[in-house]
Design a protein around this nucleic acid. Structure first.
Lengths: 187, 187
DNA sequence: CAATTCTTTCGAAGATTTCTGAAAGTTCAT
DNA sequence: ATGAACTTTCAGAAATCTTCGAAAGAATTG
C-alpha cells in the first residue's frame, strides 16, 4: 500500500475509535474521516467497499452525517449516483458538533437545574419540615452549576463568533491579563 | 416525597442520562450526582440503596470516580466504613473531566496526525508514483486539523489557568475586540 | 489469630447498540 | 408503462457494554 493510502487508513481508523467518545458511532465517524481524507467525492458503493460495511449501514450513517451537516451530497453530470464530500472547514465542523452536543447534553441539564430551583423555592413549596442547611447547600450547589454552564455557553458563543481569526485575538487579549499559559504540549 | 428529595432525584436521573454522552457510564454519573446533591458523605451501602444498584457495581464505579478525582474517600472516627463525598468545586470538576477527555480523545488523534504527516513527507517516503494534488490536499487537511486541535488546547489551558475569576477577564477582554455575543439562551 | 466487617473481583446474565442483507421503494430514461 | 440504476428500510443477528451477586480478599478488633 502506498504511503498516502496508509496514512489515510491510519487516520480513518483512529477517528473511528474516537467516534464513540464523541457521541457518534464508529461507522459514522469512519465515513466522515474517509471523506475528510479523500479529495474527490465518493459514492455509497465506494464507501461500502473501502470501509467494508453493508449497504444499509452506509446508507443510514451517510444520511445521519448529511442531517448533521457534516457532509454534503454532490451530483455529477450524467451520473445518477449520489456522491458525498466532507465539509472540510474545520471550524464549521467544530461548530456543528458543538451545537449538537450542547443541544443534547447541556440544555436538558439546564432545564432540570431550573426545575430544581423551583422545587426548593420557599414561595412555591412547603419546606418547613426540612433541614435548612441541607436546603441551602443544595441551592448553592445547583446555582453554582447553572452559573458555570451558562458561563461556558457564553465562552463557547464567543469562540464561535470570533472564528479562526478572532480566536487569535482572543488568545492575544488574554495573554495581557494572565501569565503565559504553561505549554503542556509534551513530546 | 419532600420537595428537596424530589429535586435531588430529578437531578440524579437527568445527570445519569447525560453520563453516556460524557464518556462515563450511567451509574458512574448517577453516583457522582448523588454525592453532588448530598451534603453529608455517603457509604457504599447508602449509595446502593438510594440508586438500587448492586454492591459490585457500586464498588467499581466509586473506585473509578475516585481514580478520576471526582469524589474522595472520607473516614469517620470510630467507623470502619468508607464514606465518599463529591468534589463540589465546579471548576475543578470541569478541569478534571476535560483533562481526562483530552488525554483519551485528543492526544491519540494528535499522535496519529503527526504520524500521517511523516508518512507523506517526501524526505521519508517515496511519493513519486502518487498524484501530487492528492498528496497536497491530504497534507493541507491534516495540517488544518492539527492546528485546530492545538489552538483549542491552548484556549483550554487558558480557561483553566484563568479559573473562575479569570474567566470574567477573558470575557471582558474579548468584548473589546468583537461585537457582543448574541445571547442565544432561548426560553 | 479468628471473627467480624467491609471491599474488590470476576464470570455469567441481561440490556443496549450496531450491523447486515434482502426486500421494498424511488427515480429516471426510453 | 417498463426496466435499470440507485437508495432506503427494517427485522433479526452479532457485537458491545453494563450489571449482578457470590466468592475471595483485606483490614481491624477483641
Amino acid at each position: 500500500m502506498d504511503p498516502l493510502q496508509e496514512a489515510r487508513n491510519l487516520l480513518v481508523r483512529r477517528w473511528g475509535e474516537m467516534g464513540g467518545y464523541w457521541g457518534i458511532n464508529r461507522t459514522m465517524a469512519e465515513i466522515y474521516a474517509l471523506l475528510f481524507v479523500t479529495r474527490e467525492s465518493l459514492c455509497t458503493d465506494q464507501i461500502m467497499d473501502q470501509l467494508k460495511i453493508s449497504r444499509g449501514n452506509a446508507s443510514m450513517n451517510v444520511r445521519a452525517l448529511v442531517d448533521w451537516g457534516l457532509i454534503e451530497r454532490v451530483h455529477r453530470l450524467g451520473d445518477r449516483k449520489e456522491y458525498f464530500k466532507a465539509d472540510t472547514d474545520v471550524w464549521h465542523m467544530f461548530e456543528t458538533i458543538m451545537r449538537e452536543r450542547r443541544r443534547r447534553e447541556v440544555e436538558p441539564i439546564l432545564a432540570t437545574l431550573q426545575r430544581c430551583t423551583e422545587l426548593v423555592n420557599p414561595e412555591q413549596a412547603d419546606l418547613s419540615s426540612l433541614n435548612d442547611e441541607d436546603v441551602d447547600e443544595f441551592r448553592r450547589r445547583v446555582s453554582e452549576l447553572m452559573t458555570f454552564l451558562t458561563t461556558m455557553g457564553t465562552l463557547f458563543e464567543m469562540v464561535l463568533e470570533s472564528g479562526d481569526g478572532g480566536m487569535k485575538s482572543l488568545v492575544q487579549g488574554f495573554s495581557n491579563i494572565a501569565p503565559p499559559a504553561p505549554s503542556k504540549t509534551g513530546a
